[in-house]
Design a protein around this nucleic acid. Structure first.
Lengths: 343, 343
DNA sequence: CTGAAAGCGCTTACAG
DNA sequence: CTGAAAGCGCTTACAG
């Protein structure tokens, strides 16, 4: 018995070891282990016992070499730091993990060179497919045509409409948020958002405006207050809006950070939330929403679902069924204390 | 030329294809591509061109089968959700990525069964080693002795002292935080922390007490105010402490969330930070620290470094050099506006 | 300098 | 029901 802690670990057992211990050929051992039916029950038992005794784990490399499929997939993120990649990645990992597929994780850190490097490494390892996870909903350049395996783009869609992309429906989300405020009886709704260079910011504003228009209303100040994705901007914007439009009774915020700022400013201005005004955030980032005063209603982009669906689409594509185009998944409102009907 | 978008993607090129195109044997092609020196310069060139033309990527499975090393490593996390795993994971990914090692990511979601399942899958794929990333600094049960490859535990150390573990020095961190407040001239220091069931909470309290004792002082209220890792607890604790110990002039908070609560409560009580009291948080979680009013000084656990070192130790172990035991890496104070010398 | 051959660990027809 | 043999794509002695 080799001691694990004393230097060389024991070599992993091989089919040959199992076959020898069971007193059969490796062909028979293989069949027994893989549940083929041309094996006598008693023989199978002997093989299985031998495998157990040796903690035999079939070498997936050898299997992959033979089958042409490795049961592995590459997950290429552009920034692990970003809070949007993580849930997408979790969803994908979850969907794959359940189906015995292992996931290679690569972080390109927003660098195209690094990304190419990782793609090459992944192809060398013969992944069956690739998921490319972005950190914004702005379309990104495709990986390139020389990739011989299916690719699905998640969160950030590919610029090429022939590629498969799964993302969150930003316009729909803006609509949902405003409809929620409307359903609370709010009529003077302001939209405080982040950096206007983000497609997400534009999409949500578009959706918000559309929902208001459908109700015969328009945004307070007749504009979206774009700024940055920060609490500071939320505070400043809220102060300005309350001063210029004292009758404002609803805030749709482009992020939970902005919403936190808005909430703080309103409290300091003596405005009660949700009494005087309802506030809805975006992202449903728990650390921000549940610690807010009052707890923050927020739009959830269902990012884990984006990841799961991306994984499913990739599976299908690996099995030969491509479904090109951008698929925009709906978001949902998670109601907490910061929004309530006018009482 | 096969069209990528039209069904079957082109089969990846093989060494045989390259050799044929270059008009040499596969042995020679292999040597040329791998930079062996027993190849005529002109021949090498022909081979390289052929490889280029075919976008040849050597099959890492075949190579791994032959070499007994795959250049892959498993990263086993217990929860991707937790904000502590991510930086560790990033650090490890970074350290490996630089050295041409690919990383399998598995999330056990805190479930031991799922973890075993993942370990088996990883061993089947013949990873060269494993990093187990935990979400708390409390020691965890080891993976089990039947793992035939080196294992490094990161952030959460293994209960077995013979295993290799890399974690953050919680006691030292507590000391650092208090020493920072002392160096700001604070003498009435309160420690507001989270759930006392966390080893991290206990360690930091131990370090804090030690630093105060070394200065001939003790904690305000002669205790650590344990509670939960939330803003709400921070607010409540701060109010209570200010009421009972109005001369308090420093707060060492067990997390940035707690610190945010403390800051909010102090502002609402009319206490100026850092004028009347300095406040230091823990985790250096940017979304919380930089949006705070004033911006929050915080202890950074250098988690990326924990990940990187774990990767390095794993490398060394794969190469035969084990370094058993728990390695506690130092934390550091990141100074912002919430701490300043008494003026 | 070049190439035929063995072999990494497995699966799968194909005989027996 | 069982096993000998070929082969997945590559590397590495070993001859030539």
């Amino acid at each position: 018995m080799t001691n694990q802690t004393s230097g060389t670990p024991p070599r992993a057992a091989t089919l040959t070891d199992v076959a020898r211990l069971a007193g059969v050929s490796i062909a028979t051992a293989s069949k027994a282990i893989n549940g083929r039916d041309q094996v006598k029950a008693e023989t199978r038992l002997r093989v299985l016992e031998a495998a157990e005794r040796l903690s035999f784990a079939p070498n997936a490399l050898a299997r992959g070499l033979l089958k042409g499929r490795t049961g592995t997939v590459g997950l290429l993120t552009s920034d692990l730091e970003g809070r949007f990649s993580i849930p997408v990645l979790m969803g994908a990992e979850d969907a794959f993990g359940a189906g015995r597929v292992s996931v290679f994780l690569c972080d390109a850190r927003g660098d195209a060179i690094r990304e190419q490097h990782h793609v090459r490494a992944l192809l060398s390892r013969r992944v069956d497919g690739l998921i490319v996870v972005g950190s914004r909903t702005d379309p990104r350049p495709p990986l390139g045509a020389e990739v011989p395996v299916p690719v699905v783009y998640a969160y950030a869609p590919s610029e090429d409409p022939e590629d498969m992309s799964i993302t969150a429906d930003g316009v729909g989300a803006g609509r949902l948020a405003v409809e929620h405020l409307l359903s609370c009886g709010r009529r003077k709704i302001a939209h405080v958002s982040g950096d206007p260079a983000y497609k997400a910011a534009q999409d949500r504003a578009t959706g918000a405006a559309a929902a208001l228009e459908a109700a015969g209303l328009s945004l307070v100040g007749n504009q979206t207050y774009f700024g940055s994705w920060s609490e500071g901007w939320g505070r400043g914007a809220a102060r300005m809006i309350v001063e210029q439009h004292p009758d404002v009774d609803g805030f749709f915020c482009g992020s939970d950070q902005i919403a936190r700022g808005v909430l703080d400013a309103l409290r300091e201005l003596g405005r009660d939330v949700p009494g005087d005004a309802s506030v809805i955030g975006f992202d449903n980032w728990e650390v921000l929403t549940t610690n807010a005063r009052p707890q923050l209603t927020s739009v959830d982009m269902n990012l884990e679902r984006v990841g799961r669906i991306a994984a499913q689409r990739l599976f299908a594509a690996i099995d030969g069924t491509r479904r090109p185009g951008i698929e925009e998944l709906p978001c949902r409102v998670v109601t907490r204390e910061s929004t309530a009907p006018i009482s």
